[in-house]
């Protein structure tokens, strides 16, 4: 399976990863061979087989709607790279793209 560098660039953008030139080349090569290996799944006939997203097949686990104790704000913000007035702080969003 051949993957070209433009696909790698597109995927990296979706994944919010900045790649070096060396990484772009390496991932182009490695993803190609891994995907080729993954394509061996096509040898199996899966017509009519339901996909398994989860072995327990749980749905709608309910509980009483009782307020608990939230994490202390200070403890959470203590590990934030930047914060102000009790909120996480990030660079301007509007100017992006």
């Amino acid at each position: 399976m051949s993957i070209d560098p433009s696909i790698v660039d597109r995927v990296a953008r979706l994944a919010r990863l900045e790649l070096s030139d060396e990484e772009r080349q390496r991932f182009t090569r490695q993803l190609g061979s891994i995907l080729e290996y993954c394509a061996t799944l096509n040898e199996l006939d899966t017509d009519g087989v339901e996909p398994t997203s989860h072995v327990l097949a749980l749905t709608n686990i309910f509980r009483e709607d009782v307020p608990g104790t939230p994490l202390p704000r200070d403890a959470v913000l203590a590990s934030a790279p930047d914060h102000e007035n009790g909120f996480f702080k990030v660079p301007p969003v509007i100017e992006t793209e």
């Binding site: 919010r16 900045e18 660079p91 301007p92």
Partner: peptide, 22 residues
């Protein structure tokens, strides 16, 4: 790079994401 862990500071949010993760 928003709530915890490493942040590589930049002027715009998108580059902050991609560079922090790089």
């Amino acid at each position: 790079g928003v709530q915890y862990g490493l942040r590589v500071p930049t002027d715009d949010l998108f580059t902050m994401y991609t560079r922090t993760r790089r």
